[in-house]
Write a protein that binds this DNA or RNA. Structure first.
Length: 258
DNA sequence: ATGTCTACTGATAGTAGA
């Protein structure tokens, strides 16, 4: 089974681009973030024609998350109860009774001084509490855009970035607390020394200057980690394709023996 | 060191957010 996460930066504006990726990579289950689409405008029929059913937690203008699945799936959670006013940022599903799949769009935080930065840390508190209470008895995945650079190797600024937003000790502590709940970073487990980014700013030629961050992860429990065959950060799909503009995030996918 | 993209609007150019 191929599972994936992708911050698409506007699902409706990205639809033709997404189609090319789905046809090429043929994922079985995908978590999308930043739909920027309300539930009523989600193109269910479009994805149904490609063989996917979609579970959606949408929102007008901002945020929004969805799960596409080729196998029967049903929603088990929409959003974090205490964090509803921070937007539609979490959706969970049971995938064919074999896999628990959650995808998240963690708050950006904006700047260290902005109220959203403390909000981001608090949102992580809620996510950690939530995760403690989810059934852990089978393979499960928590994937998405975490908006945190885990270690210096994961950001283009390296240790020079320490203390800046995405690189702070407070954010890294929250990510570590989350992973201490029994989650493994599938990419980093497989490639301990490799520098690979999943996001590049649209501005300033960041992609070509290799000014990226690895902030999109597939986190799996031990049961899932042991079944992982491969992990790919799909950098080719951060490039423009003809006239089609890419998201500022690359997709990340893994092949799992399920 | 900020050169882009998306969605929204008392829309048709300017703003906010990332």
């Amino acid at each position: 089974m191929r599972i994936a996460t992708w911050n698409v930066n506007g699902l409706r504006a990205r639809l033709n681009y997404i189609d090319l990726w789905l046809a090429d990579r043929q994922p079985d289950v995908v978590g999308f973030q930043e739909l920027k689409t309300p539930d009523e405008l989600f193109p269910h029929e479009h994805f149904a024609e490609l063989g996917y059913r979609c579970l959606v937690h949408g929102q007008k203008s901002w945020n929004g998350v969805a799960i596409l699945s080729k196998v029967p799936a049903e929603t088990t959670c929409l959003g974090l109860a205490e964090q509803a006013d921070f937007g539609a940022r979490l959706i969970s599903a049971d995938i064919g009774g074999k896999l628990g799949f959650t995808t998240v769009y963690c708050p950006n935080g904006k700047t260290l001084e902005h109220a959203d930065f403390q909000g981001k840390l608090a949102w992580y508190d809620s996510l950690i509490d939530h995760w403690k209470n989810v059934d852990a008895s089978r393979p499960r995945i928590l994937c998405g855009d975490f908006n945190i650079v885990p270690q210096p190797i994961d950001g283009w600024r390296g240790e020079a970035g320490d203390g800046s937003i995405f690189y702070t000790v407070e954010e890294r502590r929250q990510l570590r607390r989350l992973m201490d709940e029994g989650l493994y970073d599938l990419f980093r487990e497989r490639f301990p020394e490799e520098q690979a980014f999943s996001w590049w700013d649209y501005r300033g030629g960041a992609f070509h200057r290799k000014h990226g961050l690895r902030i999109d992860f597939l986190l799996g429990n031990q049961e899932l980690l042991s079944r992982t065959q491969d992990v790919v950060i799909d950098r080719d799909y951060r490039r423009k394709i003809g006239e089609l503009t890419a998201s500022d995030h690359a997709p990340v996918y893994a092949d799992i023996d399920i």
